[in-house]
Design a protein around this nucleic acid. Structure first.
Length: 268
DNA sequence: ATGGTAGGTACCCTA
């Protein structure tokens, strides 16, 4: 089973690039963030024609939005409001698999970016981001057990480890890598003992990124990346982890996203 | 220290 996550920053503008990523990476399940499309305008027909006939979509006009597409039928569990807003940032589905008694839970998250100022007093968007992550910790701990087969993935907008950013020292005060965010994300990780699949395969002392800003003249030359996108799994899936890959080549595609596709393969 | 780019929408917001 191959599962892809990609913040595509407008699904209507970049539906062709999503199809290209599908062709290259051959996923069975696709999770998208920042679709920026109301549900009635979501281009699900294009995906159905590419073999992704099953969809759970949760979008709004202009901002945010998440979606899960799959080749096989699944059960759409829910879409949740988070941190006091109805802004389309969290959905869950479940997939039946013969290896597990309980269905495999897949949660797709688009954590708020949090604005520019890393101060909860001065910046309500930063406070909202921290509340959102805290709420996710409570949600997972309250609703599920560590023995449940689960995946949580998406754009978490936090790069937790030193080598998840191009310069740990220079980014300590930059929203996405501040100690308070890293601590909150650690809390979410502890909620169910989530395993960070990227770091299962890539040693912690090795740089690994999923995002490069649009504001760099030459993203590849400067290589000021951050690892903002994640795929975490619970313990029952640990023995089934097969490979992890990103597609940095997609960062050079014409009119592309500032995030790149991330794929986890499970031996399922 | 600053400003750089992108998308959606409606003349500004968010990232």
């Amino acid at each position: 089973m191959r599962i892809l996550t990609w913040n595509i920053n407008s699904v209507r503008l970049r539906q062709g690039l999503v199809l290209d990523a599908i062709t290259t990476l051959k996923p069975d399940i696709v999770a998208l963030q920042e679709t920026k499309s109301p549900d009635e305008l979501f281009p699900f027909k294009a995906f159905a024609e590419a073999g992704f006939e099953h969809a759970h979509i949760h979008g709004m006009k202009g901002y945010n939005g998440v979606a899960i597409l799959a080749r096989e039928k699944f059960h759409a569990v829910d879409k949740w409001d988070r941190a006091g807003k109805s802004d389309c940032r969290h959905m869950g589905v479940e997939v039946q698999h013969k290896k597990f008694k309980k269905p495999l839970q897949i949660h797709n998250l688009y954590v708020p970016a949090g604005g520019d100022i890393p101060d909860v007093e001065a910046n309500e968007k930063f406070a909202h981001k921290l509340r959102f992550v805290d709420e996710m910790s409570d949600f997972f701990a309250g609703k599920y057990a560590r023995t449940d087969p689960m995946i949580v993935l998406g754009d978490f907008n936090i790069a937790p480890l030193e080598h998840d950013v191009w310069s740990h020292k220079q980014l300590l005060d930059v929203v996405s890598h501040t100690p308070i965010e890293v601590e909150k994300l650690k809390g979410m990780q502890d909620s169910l003992g989530w395993i960070d699949s990227a770091r299962h395969f890539i040693p912690a002392d090795q740089k690994s990124y999923t995002w490069w800003s649009y504001r760099n003249k030459d993203w590849k030359a400067s290589n000021r990346g951050r690892r903002l996108d994640h795929i975490w799994v619970t313990d029952p899936l640990k023995a089934h982890l097969k490979s992890y890959e990103t597609l940095p080549a997609a960062r050079d595609w014409i009119q592309t996203s500032d995030h790149v596709p991330v794929v986890l393969e499970l031996d399922l």
